[in-house]
Write a protein that binds this DNA or RNA. Sequence first.
DNA 1: AACATTGTGTTACTATGTAACGTGTGCGAT
DNA 2: ATCGCACACGTTACATAGTAACACAATGTT
Lengths: 138, 138
Amino acid sequence: MNKHAHPGTDLTKNQSLVMNALSAANGPLSAYAILDELRDQGFRAPPQVYRALDKLVEFGLVHRLESLNAFVACQLPSCDGETRETILFAICERCGKVEELVSSRLEKAVRSLAGEVDFSLKKSVVELRGLCAACKGE
Amino acid sequence: MNKHAHPGTDLTKNQSLVMNALSAANGPLSAYAILDELRDQGFRAPPQVYRALDKLVEFGLVHRLESLNAFVACQLPSCDGETRETILFAICERCGKVEELVSSRLEKAVRSLAGEVDFSLKKSVVELRGLCAACKGE
DNA sequence: AACATTGTGTTACTATGTAACGTGTGCGAT
DNA sequence: ATCGCACACGTTACATAGTAACACAATGTT
């Protein structure tokens, strides 16, 4: 039922609720927007949301959009299992659409650059800002 | 005197104060940290800081670190004049050091990727998280 | 049974960012 | 000159984002 179950780790009740809210949203949500979505299911206060989000991000099921202070469900076909090192988004500044991308070329460039400057890379965040295909046409 | 003067655009009083605070800091500062630094010079409220920061970012003299909610003076030898499309930082999670980088290879990968997915790129933010050379040794 | 671990609920608080309104100052157009 | 405009500035009040700390419940361990 939960298409994003973390392998070997069943989500707790709150984690599932937050995950479902994000999956249903088809786009990024702020933590407080999630809180509002879930008041019907008994959520009352920010820590309930943030604790669930922390875990979901740790599992790699959810990404944080740093430049938006918002969260989005992983959009890739198989986001179960491994957490990727490079998280990559294109964010449309007109319609707000967020598309998750993968680029091995960019990942290589990032890793290589980290090596050049002797930086021990844990993860990297790449956020492209501009206009999506639909919006740039208009 | 102000080594970061924007060509053809003299900074206003508040912009200069904020710029100097950031240049002196040798690292990122939050807007509220800047506010505290500048209380002696008459700053009283957040909008004074944010308005100056908006302009400095627009001029390309200051960058915003999205994943830290903080701001840093451009570290590149010649940050005058053109605003770069790709802003690139390595952020040490142990000592907090922030290093601004340039990589034409990465810039190319970003532009090429944007082209592939038909995304009209305005700017991009790349933030590497991990350990700097000094910290990874210990 | 005693204990540790983990998830949960709640209160209160800190931190970050903005809207809106009023004031002065310079400066070009009439 | 003076009117109007644009812009920087100051201030109040508010909105949004995130966390510390404490209490309790459920569960598994020894």
